[in-house]
Every structure is written in structure tokens, then in C-alpha cells.
Simulated scan of single mutants.
Amino acid sequence: MRIGLIYDTFESYPWREEEPPDADAEYEPVETVDILAAAVEHLGHQPVRVGTATDLRERLDRGLTLDAAVNIAEGARSRNREAHAPILLEMANIPCLGSDALTLSMTLDKSWTKDLVAAADVPTPPHRVYRRPEAVEPQALPGSFPLFAKPRYEGSSKGLRPSSRVESVDALCAEVERLRSAYDQDILVEKFIEGGGEFTVAVVGHDPPEALPALQRGVEPTTGLGLHALEHRGAPTASREWDYELRGTLTPTLEERLQTLTLRLFDRLECRDFARADFRVDADGQPWFLEVNPLPTFAPDDTFAIIAELMGRDYVDYLAEVFDRGLRRLQLA
């Protein structure tokens, strides 16, 4: 089969002068695309490197034919940006691995996602959404300080820095204004969970999906922020060497609980084939859902590659297996 690869590399971001320096943080290095192509070839199929959603639209207009597609394209600016490629593929009757356009748009919205998973009995910190600092009412905060502020429609830790953790109303108003000015969108503010560490759980497959081993993330000792939030591409703190520690203990009981919650929200949000969910654990050992990414990176140094290494698997071989499961769901294998 001819399997299209839809992706954004760092070089393809359509920069505008006024955009923040981490605007392309969700995009991928070329090495990720090479891994995707190698996994497709491992299955005996022909990878077709299409590129961005814009590239896809233009090539479809010129008669591009595909039997299926693997999409990891993030798009740009619009809160529906992650849906651009899946919609084009759907309109062209090209089956696509991964979650559909509705799930991708909805899960990019951190507020709506939290409301949906909370309704499915997945604990998530209480939150409020602010458009501007004038909307912050001291008597109606989502919880006691410390609180945490982040853009409502972004991923890959965009916008996060030490000041994202706030300890007062004045600091909160200043952070809402900083993020609103930089990202021109609503700001989600939630209770900052501390005490028991930070973890991520990936899911692959379908009917039933499989929760992979949980990975523990390092946190910066002073702020308690996850190290990835300080080191992401384009962050003003990325060039600094940060100390970190692994807070809490990943016991078998905690790992099972994290996997159960991840599978529950994977089902509730109608994710497909692959996704990754992030949690923080409080001092009492209670996990709290933070966000989910149905377009996780397959970079050769990130979550899925680390899990493959822990399982003693060749990464290309393991990723090919993940894609094969998706093709079977689509009844193409």
C-alpha cells in the first residue's frame, strides 16, 4: 500500500513576526519522519512523504492517491489546527491512523477535555478559564494557591515557564496578561498539584487498547515544574541546565491506577491507535489528570522510543507493530 505521512517539521513552520519563540515547539525534527517511514517500510508498504496539511491539500488537488495515511501534523494558530489534515483525508476518502478530527480539536482544548474526563470519573484539578486579567476574581479562584496558568489551546508545554506557577492574585493576573498577550487565546488556570511526582502513560491499539508502562518525569526542585516544561523548544529557560528530582515512587499499585485512568479517558475521548496522557500525583498518592495528546511525538528520543527500549524492542519494529494495529482497525491489514 501507499501510505502517506502527514507531518510538520521545524523548518515548515509559517512564522509571523509577532509570534512567541516557542510557536513551533510541537513540530518535529526530520529524524521523526525518517522513523515513521522506516516503520511503514518494515511492514512492507511504501511511505509517501507528503508534508504539512497545506502540502496535503495541494497534492490532493494535483491527483495524489494514497491507500492510508499516518498523521502527526499539528497545524498552526487555529484551535482546530490539528483537525486540518484529518478532515482533508476524510474528504478524500483516505483512511487515517490515529484519532479523528473531532477528537483532535476537542482534546486540544484543555478546558473541554477536563470537563469530559471529569464526567468519566477521572480526577483532574479544578480550573477556571480567563480571557484577561480583569476577569480574575479573588473570591472565585479554582482553588488555593499555588495555581498554574497555561494557554488553553496549546501543547508541548508552550508558554510555560517558572512564572506559570503563581502564589498570589497579583502574580496570577500578571501571568494571565503575559500568556494572553503572547498567544492571543484564553488562559486555563488550575490548582497546582504537588507532592507525589509527575508521570506519563501512553496507549496503543484498539479493541481493547493497551496502556504501556508508566514513565516518571523529573521535576525541578525549586518550582516543582516538570523538567520538560522548562526545556522545551523555544522556551527562554531551555538553554539553562536545570537540576531535577524524581518525586514520589512509581509503585505497581500507582502504575495500575495511572493505566486504568488513561484507558478510561482514552475511551471517553474516543482516541484511536495511539495517545499519551500526563498526570501529577499529590502527597496522598492521588493521581490527577493534566492533559492528553492524541498526536504524540514519535521522536527517537521520546516516550514511545523510551518504552520500546524498556521492553527490549527495536524501535522501528515496535512502531511498525503499533501502525499495524491501526491498519487492522481500518481493516487494511
Rank of each mutant, 00 (worst) to 15 (best):
T124M: 01
I87W: 07
A118R: 15
L64I: 02
L179N: 03
R2Q: 15
G248I: 07
F289G: 00
M106Y: 09
R329C: 12
D115T: 13
N93S: 15
L215K: 03
V33I: 15
V316E: 03
D109K: 00
I87N: 11
R325K: 13
D278V: 05
V281W: 08
K150I: 07
V292L: 01
A229Q: 14
E90H: 14
L265N: 00
E241V: 15
G234M: 08
D34P: 01
D61S: 14
L215G: 06
L172A: 02
A238H: 10
L258F: 10
V117I: 09
R16S: 13
R257P: 04
P146L: 01
G197F: 08
T223M: 06
V189P: 04
E90G: 14
H206G: 07
L263T: 11
E26V: 06
G44A: 02
D207N: 15
F192W: 13
F266P: 07
F274G: 01
P14I: 01
A38T: 02
K150Q: 05
M91T: 12
I3K: 03
P133R: 12
D8N: 15
P162Y: 04
F10K: 11
S105E: 06
T253C: 05
R217N: 13
A92I: 11
G63E: 00
G75P: 02
W112R: 14
L172Y: 04
P162R: 04
E177G: 10
R313E: 15
T113D: 01
F10Y: 15
G143K: 09
T237A: 02
A299S: 14
G285M: 10
